[in-house]
Design a protein around this nucleic acid. Structure first.
Lengths: 238, 238, 238, 238
DNA sequence: TATGAATGAGCATTCATTCAT
DNA sequence: CATGAATGAATGCTCATTCAT
């Protein structure tokens, strides 16, 4: 047992999903580095940090191992670089998906949509961030925790904004709001895994499910008052 | 970087938290096996599956390495046994904490309390189930997924029961209910990590936060209608 | 270029002088350790510390590489163990050759004889001590320096004893005596290399040459008053 | 453990004592070669032949690695060139310090002074000649041996000259004289290391110690008849 | 003349696993 | 029941050396 897909799909021992870079010689350093990071994210994401070998990463990147070391320094540094790149990509995707001038619930809806879309299109990157980085100790865990903290902070602000928009000061302390944000983010992470592993569940559906859950609460759902996603057609025109 | 605590805390290279078994000779097989599993859970939980060495596990268990192989067969089998034992312990703890005759929301409240209490008292087991098993591919991921599926199913039933109690058929399909349960379980997992990592947050507080989030929803919270945990005094007497 | 004999004799790339241990299975640890040290001294002595590979040492010792690591820990530790063993062997040989009840010059004569005999019979050990340990930095150099300091101290005492025996306090400070001892030891080291590299020069001749040089001085030699080695026949009877 | 000073002083991993060449473009080949040899001697002397990397040498020389290969061909050739240059420098320094018209003991005195002065001013070169070249096999050992043989031959001639000056044919064969010369040179080498490692011992003191040892012999020293260094003032004027 | 880009080959080290007793 | 002795197979990393420009 060694190889594994993002959600735990067993792989034939030495085959990674996705095609390797075509062997092209003499590229400028910056280009080669990106190729290496691509290969590394795919390998770390599918095999796991420890099971991934520098040999395999180099081969997938279409370069020799010494070049990987020359540019990325060590397995640890390479993994850290992967985490940072994927974290930046994910937060950028979420940020790009959110229009800050909208009401809080709409911002959350858009952010969730962008989040589920991104994780579904980048399963290896998501595995690196959500599974590998958290599982293999320092300094990786902190790196991933930093990104997560950023997202939690964003969600915390959103909740507070929603309270303001409802013309109420929430009568619970801000530290409780952080707990709510943690719960929301955790639910989103779980739904991302669920949506990716369940055929027929789209990013949009996952986002809707979570908005219902978070905004209305199960109790209200029971009372027949689900939260309603805004109409996409209106959105595009407005 | 190698050693790691549950949440990624770096450890001095060869020291595990918790004391090793006292070296006693000639124990019945069942006892020896439990000692080995204790040692293995601690080691896998703190160092990670791959970084844990059979040498260290054997030493911590106070037996020789061949004996570990004699009883548990291989590293893979040993890890699988750990996952199964910890999964059984966790579900048993939750089950034991829930009185099935209560209304659904009360059952959820009790189950969450038991869950947070158990994870907080068994950080290594929780690390094995929540981090290690999911990160290191098949057959481990399926093993952990099975336990999780059980919990999700339980929560799903709880949600449906709540609907029945409210004398309503929810007007959304059951597959959506699974999504809600996934979200709730994911939120619980995240809050378990958060509570364990945040001094001053108790299992009870985490459970209350999540009940508010899940039952009332953020929208209702904003409207000043938080879900209220039942009074513990009444509970004991009633 | 890689292989080399004690004094720099080129070797066919993968052949060490001396036969390898016959492959015998299941030896007690202490025995295997000595075999490993034998192999290591031969390999380090002939190829040099850095050019020696753990693979070659293991093969020459007739064991697998992991066993070498299990017993000796690392290349550095293995080399240190070699230095210590050879240093102990050399000083023991010199001590065993000296009768402390004799006059100082006789003690020096005997010590030199033992020294030259030992280095000539243990060229690899001598190479380890005199060349390899001094050339490859800390902590090896200190290890070899400690042994050398012991010998220098012994010679220093001999010189002071000679002065006392001549009923004179030397009119130069003790620090000067250390310089003389350093010079004498350096001369002995050079003569050991010279005798080993020059066919027809025996340990006894080397010792005689050095006694003449050290005890009479070139000036006296010019005046026809060499120091005379004691008659070996007398020595044995007396 | 990798970096090391001449006598085995450990160095912080990538810092060589002495400043690197300023990066200037388009130098004539001869100049560039000398810069490279300077860098190489420093690196080989401080890190050792094997631990020295061509990368570090090139960087210290302020040129690219291919240029080093273009000019010096290979690591082996580069090291050989270093040995030759340093050997030539050392013998030249000794020759320049000796006035051949003086009596033999005065020539020896002057030669030793020049030798100790040179080694003390060129610790890296001395390390290359005395430690590195002898320790790393052929063809380096022969290269260093050739220089040493030259010096031994010079000292041999000096001893024979002293005999002639004393109007005596020494009644021992010339091969014995070579042994005496070997001893003297070995003593000088040891004293060079000792003087460089011992604060407060000057080249002049080392030379005096060795002249006493060699010319008078310990026996005569005991009898209170040391060899006396000529008065420095006279020397300068005469 | 000079260099950025690239690699084949090797090395120290570790680990899961198995005999022989 | 229990273990001391032993290893095949990898893996991270480095280095001397060479193209292509």
């Amino acid at each position: 047992m060694v190889g594994r897909g993002p959600g735990g799909i067993a792989l034939p021992a030495r085959t990674l999903i996705g095609m390797g870079a075509v062997k092209t010689k003499r590229m400028p350093r910056a280009v080669r580095e990106q190729q290496m990071l691509d290969a590394a994210v795919r390998t770390f994401g599918q095999r796991g940090y420890m099971a991934a070998s520098m040999d395999e990463i180099a081969e997938l990147a279409g370069v020799s191992k010494p070049l990987v070391y020359l540019y990325l320094n060590s397995k640890e540094d390479l993994f850290t670089a992967c985490i940072r790149r994927e974290a930046a990509a994910l937060t950028a995707a979420v940020r790009a998906g959110v229009r800050r001038e909208l009401p809080a619930d709409r911002q959350l809806w858009e952010g969730l949509g962008a989040f589920f879309a991104h994780t579904s299109l980048n399963p290896d990157g998501w595995s690196v961030l959500h599974l590998q980085a958290r599982t293999h100790g320092e300094p990786f865990a902190s790196e991933a925790a930093a990104m997560r903290a950023e997202i939690v902070a964003f969600v915390t602000q959103l909740i507070l904004a929603a309270a303001r928009e409802a013309h109420r000061d929430p009568d619970f302390p801000e530290s409780d709001v952080v707990g709510l944000a943690e719960a929301l983010v955790g639910a989103a992470e779980a739904l991302a895994d669920w949506a990716n592993a369940t055929p027929g569940v789209t990013a949009r559906q996952a986002a809707a499910t979570l908005m219902n859950f978070a905004w209305s609460g199960l109790g209200n759902l029971m009372d027949g008052q689900p939260w309603t996603p805004p109409d996409a057609a209106h959105e595009a025109s407005g």
